[in-house]
Amino acid sequence: MSTHVKKPGWLTVNLLNRAVAGLTALGISVWGSRVLAVRGRKSGEWRTTPVNPLTLDGQQYLIAPRGHVQWTRNMRAVGGGELRLGKNVDVFTATEVADDDKVPLLRAYLKRWKAEVGVFFDGVGPESPDQDLRRIAPDHPVFHITVTN
């Protein structure tokens, strides 16, 4: 498995993520944003971060543009979490998508959010050939989520 991680800088952690999470907590979605809540794999405590869920062909996915970060490790360990928007909470289970199945998902994600997250995909964009998307697939965990509530 890839160990690819692009850690956020101070501006992202202290300003951008907090602003998006704050608006989302108030029920104001920024381009479809949600607050992802996942229990810590060691502590069992809720951990939260803003995310951009992808809906494609009626299915929902979470894609990690920054790679194998803490929320992806927690998701693998606990198998689900919550997507929050204001007082609305969707409880879900999650199944990791195999690298071979990620190409159309990564393409759709980049088509929707390239302006926001494109820098984390090493020059690969929505118009890139399948082979380039396959090359970066191991670096970006993808989870199929199923809402259970």
Rank of each mutant, 00 (worst) to 15 (best):
N52R: 04
D132T: 01
E116I: 10
G32N: 01
G32C: 00
R112G: 03
R107I: 11
W10H: 11
K111W: 01
A25V: 01
R76M: 14
V5G: 01
P129K: 08
H144F: 00
L26R: 14
L56Q: 14
A25F: 03
L85T: 09
V13G: 09
G22W: 04
K42I: 07
R41F: 02
V124Q: 07
R47P: 06
L83H: 11
R112C: 03
P141W: 02
F92C: 07
Q60I: 00
R76V: 15
H144T: 03
P129A: 09
D90E: 07
K102P: 09
V78N: 01
H4T: 13
A21Q: 08
L106R: 07
H140S: 01
Y109G: 05
G118C: 12
W71T: 15
M75S: 12
A77N: 11
S29W: 05
N17V: 07
H140R: 01
E127T: 15
A21V: 02
I63C: 02
A21T: 12
F143G: 04
W31R: 11
L16H: 14
G125C: 04
V20M: 02
V5F: 10
N17L: 13
I145T: 01
Y61V: 08
P53L: 08
N52V: 05
V78K: 08
L62R: 07
D99Y: 02
K87L: 03
R135Y: 04
H68M: 04
L15F: 15
D57K: 13
L85Q: 13
T93H: 08
L133P: 09
V91S: 13
Q59E: 15
T24H: 07
H4D: 13
R47A: 09
G125R: 04
W113N: 12
R47T: 01
S2Y: 05
T95E: 15
A98T: 09
P50L: 05
V91T: 14
L110I: 08
N88G: 01
L85A: 08
N88D: 13
T72W: 09
N14E: 09
F120D: 15
A21R: 04
F120V: 03
N149R: 10
D139M: 03
R47D: 02
W71L: 09
F120H: 15
N52K: 08
F120K: 09
T146D: 05
R47V: 10
V91F: 06
T93P: 08
V35C: 00
S33R: 00
T146Q: 07
T48F: 03
G125S: 14
D57I: 00
L23P: 06
L83Q: 11
K7W: 11
S29G: 03
L11R: 14
G44W: 02
L26D: 00
Q59M: 05
R84T: 09
W46M: 12
G40K: 01
G80P: 13
A37S: 11
D57R: 13
D139I: 00
E45V: 02
H4K: 14
R66T: 06
A137T: 08
V5K: 15
P129L: 06
R112L: 11
N52H: 11
M75H: 08
P8I: 10
S43E: 07
R39N: 10
V13S: 15
A19R: 06
S29E: 10
R39S: 12
F121H: 14
L11V: 15
G67Y: 05
P8M: 13
